[in-house]
Amino acid sequence: MKILKDGVKAPVTFSLNGEDIEGYAEPRTLLSDFLRHELGASGTHVACEHGVCGACTVSVDGKAVRSCLMLAAQAEGKDVQTIEGLSKGDEDFGDLQEAFHQRFALQCGFCTPGMLMTLASLKGTGRSYSEAEIRDALSGNICRCTGYREIVDAALDVLGDQVKA
């Protein structure tokens, strides 16, 4: 049994978008803050910090989760994917981002990283999703701009007829 002392920064190592990283975190450091402040991966957004808005959604071991409701220390040894992992660069979008671009699925863009990470976790299963299933998954992500229609359309473009289950 290991005890990490309050106020003391301890090393945390995990795989971030396929690359092994190391940083230092206090026991109370949230995974969202660790990504943004310690690793400089500020694509993950933070708003409510109590699990309601979904802006901070990342993928841990293939599952979409709230990074504001996880301690950095709990990511030790895990496979963490963030929005930075979805495309190779500014000119080379992944298909979900391309669909968002085509469908005008973002306005201010604050919710977008979380939306995309939720959808990326669906894409990871390799199966097709109905509009109802997509809406159910996106109910965990709040957008204050778009009204969701364009987001759902973009998601359907990519997930509507993926390889069948």
Binding site: K5, G7, D33, A73
Partner: peptide
């Protein structure tokens, strides 16, 4: 907001 400081025990059993 952020949590107040605490010790973290990583239990194995």
């Amino acid at each position: 907001m952020k949590p107040a400081p605490f010790d973290l025990c990583l239990a194995e059993s």
